[in-house]
């Protein structure tokens, strides 16, 4: 699977897909998208890259072991839920902070956002773990 067209395409696609995945993640709370889709999108980018260039190159570009992504993702999701315990509210209750950005409007930051980032990282990590493992076997 070392066709030149694929390689060139993938080289262009990867950053686009990654950017798009973050875009999907961040807009997910208000429009279609979210951690699941975002994570899958990011993973798809690397999956294509890994098919074109091999998993070792893909791993080098990624720099982080996908297993670490899984762990960080789960921890983030969990701790976003635990944060509410400090406020003596049930586990996973959403907590929101409104930041006023003057003319730009308001920015609403909440624990569900961190939770969604956790989902994103977990899905990304799991998918890549599976793809890399399948590719490197045998």
């Amino acid at each position: 699977m070392t066709s030149l067209i694929l390689r060139t395409m993938v080289r262009l696609l990867l950053p686009l897909l990654l950017l798009f995945s973050v875009f999907l993640l961040l807009r997910g709370h208000n429009e279609p998208g979210g951690g699941f889709v975002g994570g899958l999108m990011a993973a798809t980018g690397f999956a294509l890259f890994s098919i074109a260039f091999g998993s070792s190159t893909a791993r080098r570009i990624l720099q982080i072991d996908p297993l670490v992504l899984i762990g960080v993702g789960l921890l983030l999701a969990l701790s976003s839920g635990l944060m509410t315990l400090l406020l003596e509210q049930p586990f996973l209750t959403g907590v929101w902070y409104k930041l006023s950005l003057g003319a730009l409007g308001k920015l609403e930051l909440g624990t569900p956002l961190f939770f969604d980032i956790g989902v994103y990282l977990t899905v990304w990590g799991v998918t890549l773990t599976i793809i890399f493992a399948l590719e490197e076997v045998g």
Binding site: T127, A133, L134
Partner: peptide, 13 residues
């Protein structure tokens, strides 16, 4: 959908 992906991957492995 996502879970069934995980299951399929696991079953393949």
């Amino acid at each position: 959908i996502v879970i069934s992906f995980g299951v399929t991957a696991f079953a393949l492995a």
